[in-house]
Amino acid sequence: MTTVPEAVFDIAVIGAGMAGASIASALSSTHRVLLLEQEDQPGYHATGRSAAVFTAIYGNETVRALSRASREFLAAPPEGFADHALTSPLGNMFVARADQLGRLEAFFARPDIAPLTTWLDASATRRLCPLLAEPYVAASVYEPGALAIDVDALHQGYLRAFRRNGGALVTRSGLEGLDHDEGRWILRTATGAFASAVVVNAAGAWADNVAAMAGSRTGYVKPFRRTAVLVDPPADMEIARWPFVMDIDEDFYFKPDAGALLLSPADETACEPCDAQPDEWDIAVAVDRVCTATTLQVRRIRHSWAGLRTFSRDRLPIAGPDLDLPGFYWLAGQGGYGIQTAPALAQLLAARIRDEDCPEALRAEGIAYADMGTERFHLQPAA
């Protein structure tokens, strides 16, 4: 039986988190765009559970390049994009024990990290964050230009621009079928059927499911759970100016968060796509690791939560066409960097869908279409 679509669009974007909202916003200036979201509201999963930090020295080389290319937008968004600044000063610090100094030195020596950072000895490190225990910290690499991101303002800015351009957002519209017929995609959802010439798979943890529904290869991406905890700070310390602090081996991180301290064990537990919930063991590990590195004493947990960080097989984002399917594009696998790289990835994928050259600002950072697309997986052995 032929499915009759209720509406026809140029492009349908699946998933209205940060990835979907940013690419839908970018494309809506030139195309009629549908944005589908399975939840009651956009941004319920990974977007709404982000650590909300911009750092140009976090992640692999490609992620760092995407972050640098996104900074200008985050620091100075287009007029009318948001009612207030999207970012505020924070600072970021990678710390090391004496036995980790070799790894910290190697990190500091990288050519794209050294210009953005300062090497601090133990005393200087503790002056910036007095919570760190004196016997624990040997040195740190400090990034003064790191920023706190207002994730909700960024997300809502993209959605506002999308609506202003005439885009259609449909929530409570989980995908139930996706078929290619007579040169267009038919999307069957909980709220009806829609048609579009192009589909963008921005479904986050569900991206592999969407690909399977479309008839693509699977196994490009996999979600992993990460835990966060809010606790009371020491009563005798003013924490507002403390930086984001991460262990050089990424065994934990903590940062000030609206008068509380946010702790994480930086866990990475493979799981199925779901409404992620924190595990008691991971909560305990977060507290133990941070308390070991600091003088913090945790007497109660204010709040805990978990989110899903979705990685590709090679830990690089996917932003490009599916080589097996006509008019099917991916925007997935951003890992824990999806908020801070959203402007660059949306700009890159929008240009590729429009059949334009890779934007000069991205090429200047060494970013190429071939690095971001699914073509690279055809040259790699399966995991």
Rank of each mutant, 00 (worst) to 15 (best):
E238M: 01
A69W: 05
A342S: 15
D181M: 08
D314V: 04
R241C: 15
P273L: 04
V298E: 08
L362F: 07
V8A: 02
I149C: 05
A7D: 14
I283V: 12
L175G: 13
T227F: 04
W206S: 11
A342W: 13
F244L: 12
I57K: 05
G177T: 04
Y220L: 14
L101Y: 15
T191F: 03
R363A: 09
C271R: 06
Q100P: 03
L66W: 12
T87K: 02
D322G: 03
V229R: 04
D247S: 02
G183W: 00
I186F: 01
Y253L: 03
A7T: 11
G183T: 07
V95N: 01
Y329E: 03
L348G: 08
Y220A: 08
A383H: 08
V221H: 08
H378N: 09
S29V: 09
Y58S: 08
F108N: 09
E182V: 05
V8F: 12
G215D: 14
P243D: 15
E79P: 05
V95M: 00
E268Y: 13
A351C: 07
E143N: 05
E356Y: 10
P223L: 01
E72C: 06
L308K: 10
D257R: 00
R217K: 14
I353T: 13
L86S: 08
V287W: 03
S88N: 05
I367A: 01
F81C: 02
A203D: 02
G335F: 06
T269W: 10
I301P: 02
A114H: 15
F73Q: 11
A286M: 03
N209G: 15
L86Q: 06
G48C: 09
A197M: 06
A153M: 00
R172L: 08
R313D: 09
G15H: 08
R64N: 03
I57S: 12
H155G: 14
S29N: 07
E143Y: 02
E61F: 01
V170M: 06
R225H: 11
A7F: 02
R225K: 12
E6K: 11
E375K: 00
T30S: 14
L116I: 10
R313N: 13
P130Y: 06
A364F: 09
V33C: 07
T55V: 11
P381M: 07
V231R: 12
L296C: 09
I14D: 14
I11E: 06
C291A: 09
P130G: 04
H180Q: 14
